[in-house]
């Protein structure tokens, strides 16, 4: 260790015979900084000196050949470490992508959990509805059962199946092609985006044209549904949707398409298509199945007195064909 006079950057006047600082017989003036001086004066691992001393004592040369496999492996490991750290620092490695993938996977997983729960909820609600209908019919209150299911269809508490039309609305091609935030840069591209107002007009046009039940991307609309926007996403009942927007409407297959096309909703769509390139498509469908609304809740209830019925909110359940007259729910913008 002391064979090389240049080895220690700070020459020490200490007469300590051992390399351990501060353990000499005389108290060093910088003893309180033993840690720092130790780091400064003995940067080399003391083990090297000790090993060399042992070798000398054993009559061997003070240095080993430096060819052992272990040392080589460690050096390979060091190189690996350096390369990995370098890649990591330059962001070339997939770590950031990995992190993002983890988040994406987590979101997907939780989405799956949520939709499973939702399905379970719908199934349970269906079961509840079946039971209720059975109970009412057993109690010879068939009128009541009919009333419940009729109201359920109108309010959106029951899933509905029947003929109708599918209105597909999508952003203009320019918007769809532009990736995410870049579309905001050009106003022309942004003009082609379907807004919540447009969707509101379409839905209101469908109600006006005689639709009996309407859903947007699988979200059944009720009298309390809201179509609004948050940022660039359109929310229906606080659930974000992504284009294309598929609006399903159940109604008279003979009159609904024509009345919709002639009404305000159809005119509005045509205007959007002509001026902003918004793409839309109206196709009649022989059978559509609309789910029950998941957002309905009991808001008001009153006790049953005699034949008077309780006015309760939810009664989701069995799929049946809508036979009721046109509903007139109000849309909250």
């Amino acid at each position: 260790m002391n064979a090389d006079d240049g080895a220690t950057p700070v020459p020490t006047p200490a007469p300590a015979p051992t390399p351990d600082p501060g353990s000499g017989p005389a108290r060093r003036r910088d003893e309180s900084m033993a840690l720092l001086t130790g780091v400064m004066e003995h940067p080399l691992d003391l083990g090297y000196a000790a090993a060399a001393e042992r070798r000398r004592a054993g009559g061997e040369p003070p240095t080993s050949a430096g060819r052992s496999i272990a040392a080589l492996l460690v050096l390979v490991l060091v190189g690996l470490l350096l390369a990995t750290a370098g890649l990591q620092a330059r962001g070339q490695t997939t770590s950031r992508v990995t992190e993002r993938d983890l988040l994406v996977a987590e979101i997907g997983r939780q989405d799956g959990v949520a939709s499973r729960l939702q399905q379970a909820n719908v199934a349970l609600a269906n079961q509840l509805e079946t039971e209720r209908t059975r109970q009412l019919q057993q109690q010879a209150q068939g009128d009541l059962a009919d009333q419940v299911s009729r109201l359920g269809l109108v309010t959106g508490a029951l899933s509905v199946a029947g003929p109708g039309i599918t209105v597909t609305v999508d952003d203009a091609a320019a918007v769809a092609e532009a990736p995410g935030g870049d579309a905001r840069a050009t106003t022309t591209a942004d003009d082609g985006r379907v807004l919540d107002q447009d969707l509101q007009k379409v839905v209101n046009g469908l109600w006006e044209a005689g639709a009996e039940a309407v859903s947007v991307n699988g979200q059944r609309l009720t009298a309390l549904s809201a179509i609004r926007s948050a940022g660039q996403a359109i929310l229906v009942d606080y659930r974000p949707l992504s284009p294309p927007y598929r609006v399903l409407a159940i109604g008279d297959p003979d009159t609904l398409p024509a009345r919709f096309a002639d009404g305000a909703g159809g005119r509005d769509l045509m205007y959007l298509s002509d001026n902003f390139g918004v793409r839309y498509d109206v196709t009649p469908a022989p059978r559509l199945v609309l789910p029950a609304s998941a957002g309905l809740d009991v808001r008001r209830a009153q006790p049953v007195t005699g034949a008077t019925t309780a006015q309760t909110g939810p009664s989701a359940g069995s799929t049946s064909t809508a036979t009721t007259g046109p509903a007139t729910p109000k849309e909250r913008p």
């Binding site: 090389d4 090297y48 003070p62 050949a65 052992s68």
Partner: peptide
């Protein structure tokens, strides 16, 4: 320094 040691 001439005191290299693999194990160390």
């Amino acid at each position: 320094d001439g005191i290299f040691d693999d194990k160390v």
